[in-house]
Simulated scan of single mutants.
Amino acid sequence: MTDILLFSYGTLQDPEVQKANFGRLLEGTADRLLGFVLSEVEITDPRVIAESGLSRHPILQPSDDLADAIEGTAFRITGDELRAADAYESADYRRVLAPLASGLEAWVYIAA
């Protein structure tokens, strides 16, 4: 396994979404992302809707208040799995490297 961390606060935590995109269930640790607030976005990609079962997905917006925190899971993944996650996320999202409450850094998808 590799040291790539992916922080998920939404559908990438769903076992069915993980199996569809990574071919396995991911192992992760609960953590928090600081300085963001949660919103929703309408998803139009039929494949993503079929895999997640949802047409509205959570999405993160930056906050000026570092006390704002989002609960989620930090998953250890491979480079190929990170590319698979990129393919799963719609154009509404962009991937950034962000610090977690644990002191680790992880890739996370936020509003584009």
Rank of each mutant, 00 (worst) to 15 (best):
D3P: 05
I4H: 11
L104T: 06
E27F: 11
G72A: 02
S63A: 01
R47G: 05
D86L: 09
A30N: 10
T73F: 06
E16A: 08
D31F: 10
G72F: 13
N21Q: 03
D92C: 05
T44H: 07
N21L: 00
L100R: 07
G103P: 10
A69W: 13
F75S: 00
E105G: 04
A111F: 11
Y9D: 12
V108L: 12
D64E: 03
V96N: 05
A85M: 03
V48W: 07
D14F: 12
V37R: 14
E71P: 14
K19R: 14
E16D: 14
T73E: 09
R95W: 10
D14Q: 09
D80R: 00
E51C: 09
S63K: 01
S8V: 02
A111Y: 12
G10C: 04
A69F: 14
D45C: 07
L82A: 15
E105K: 07
P99S: 15
F22I: 01
R32W: 01
A67R: 13
F22W: 03
D3S: 05
Q61W: 06
N21V: 00
V17S: 05
S90V: 10
M1S: 03
R47M: 05
T11D: 04
D86R: 01
S55W: 14
T2D: 12
T11A: 14
S63D: 04
G23V: 07
A112F: 13
M1K: 03
D31N: 13
T44C: 03
D3A: 01
L25N: 05
S39A: 13
V48F: 07
I70P: 14
P62K: 00
L104I: 10
E27A: 02
G35I: 04
D45K: 02
G28Q: 06
A98V: 03
R56S: 15
V108F: 07
A91M: 15
P58T: 00
L54R: 12
E16G: 15
A84H: 07
R56M: 04
G103I: 08
L25Y: 15
I77K: 06
V48Y: 12
G10T: 01
R94Q: 09
L5P: 05
I59Y: 04
P99M: 11
F22R: 01
R47C: 11
A98W: 09
H57T: 04
D92W: 12
G10M: 06
Y88L: 08
F22V: 02
L26M: 01
E51L: 14
L97F: 02
P99Q: 08
E89Y: 02
E81N: 09
